[in-house]
């Protein structure tokens, strides 16, 4: 194993530990406001400075990792499982099932994510779970279309015919062949969509949905610090760097895990 995958693992593990025990790494509270010390530049006291309400940015970042990773992971899991399973099903079953699923996902695709979130908030109220479902639903059509068209292609391959002839079930074909064949491009897409999911969570706050203040998330930190790009540009750097590092680490790991193409019998 090279040095990069090791660093990547270290970063991911560190992030998981931080999300589980953020209080171990800071002496501040993520929500304690100090109006007399607003927008302080980085110093030994506050290594990333303080935000517009005088809160320690480093502390907020630690807590934000927890909330954002949870939302992003949950929503991607929803998007991935819905999209890939139903996409595969669509390709294999064809006919009416394919048409119905296409219409369903086209509808989700047409309705903007903000509206999906609004609809879910009407039912479950504005909270983290609702936000995750909304983000997951609106990202699902990407996976659906991708795996449907790729699965169609795979289905023309001789070994699938062979498997079918040997009596393999539909779900077996989906999991064994389609998911594995598409693992790499799907994983790559998911990892990149992670940053979309995080940014999307922030855009939900336009309608007052999603995570409510003063709880920090990477998304709402970005949305807030964006307005200080001319006065305190270093603020924006902190959450953006975390997102960038997370994505590249996950990507490195995915590359490593999938570098040996899976042999299909």
């Amino acid at each position: 194993m090279g040095v990069w995958p090791k660093i990547a693992i270290a970063i991911i593990v560190a992030e998981i530990i931080v999300s589980l025990f953020p209080q171990l790494f800071t002496k501040y509270s993520s929500t304690a406001i100090d109006l007399s010390n607003r927008l302080a530049p980085p110093s030994t006291q506050h290594i990333l400075g303080t935000d517009s309400l005088g809160r320690d940015v480093f502390t907020r970042l630690l807590y934000a990792i927890r909330y954002s990773l949870a939302v992003a992971a949950l929503s991607l899991a929803i998007a991935f499982s819905l999209g890939v399973v139903l996409g595969g099903l669509s390709a294999i079953a064809g006919g009416y099932i394919d048409s119905a699923l296409s219409i369903l996902f086209n509808t989700i695709y047409t309705i903007p994510g903000l509206f999906t979130a609004a609809a879910i908030s009407i039912v479950v109220g504005p909270n983290v779970i609702g936000a995750s479902i909304a983000i997951g639903l609106s990202l699902a059509p990407i996976f659906y279309r991708f795996s449907r068209s790729a699965a169609k292609e795979i289905l023309t391959k001789p070994y699938i015919e062979a498997a079918k002839a040997l009596g393999a079930s539909t779900s077996w074909i989906i999991t064994r062949y389609i998911v594995w064949e598409l693992a790499k491009p799907l994983l790559t897409t998911s990892i990149y969509l992670l940053s979309d999911a995080i940014a999307f969570e922030a855009s939900l706050s336009i309608l007052g949905l999603g995570v409510q203040p003063p709880t920090p998330t990477l998304g709402n930190m970005i949305a807030e610090y964006r307005e200080y790009i001319f006065t305190a540009p270093y603020l924006l750097l902190a959450p953006v760097t975390v997102i960038a590092i997370t994505i590249s680490s996950l990507n490195t790991l995915a590359n490593k895990l999938l570098s040996n193409p899976i042999e299909v019998p």
């Binding site: 929500t31 304690a32 406001i33 309400l53 504005p126 706050s205 007052g208 409510q212 203040p213 003063p214």
Partner: peptide, 22 residues
């Protein structure tokens, strides 16, 4: 401002939940 008000009211024993609304 809402977050600052929340902190002031919590300090006198009133629990405050912020709700952002469109």
């Amino acid at each position: 401002l809402a977050q600052a008000i929340q902190q002031y009211l919590v300090a006198v024993g009133i629990n405050v939940v912020i709700e952002q609304v469109e």
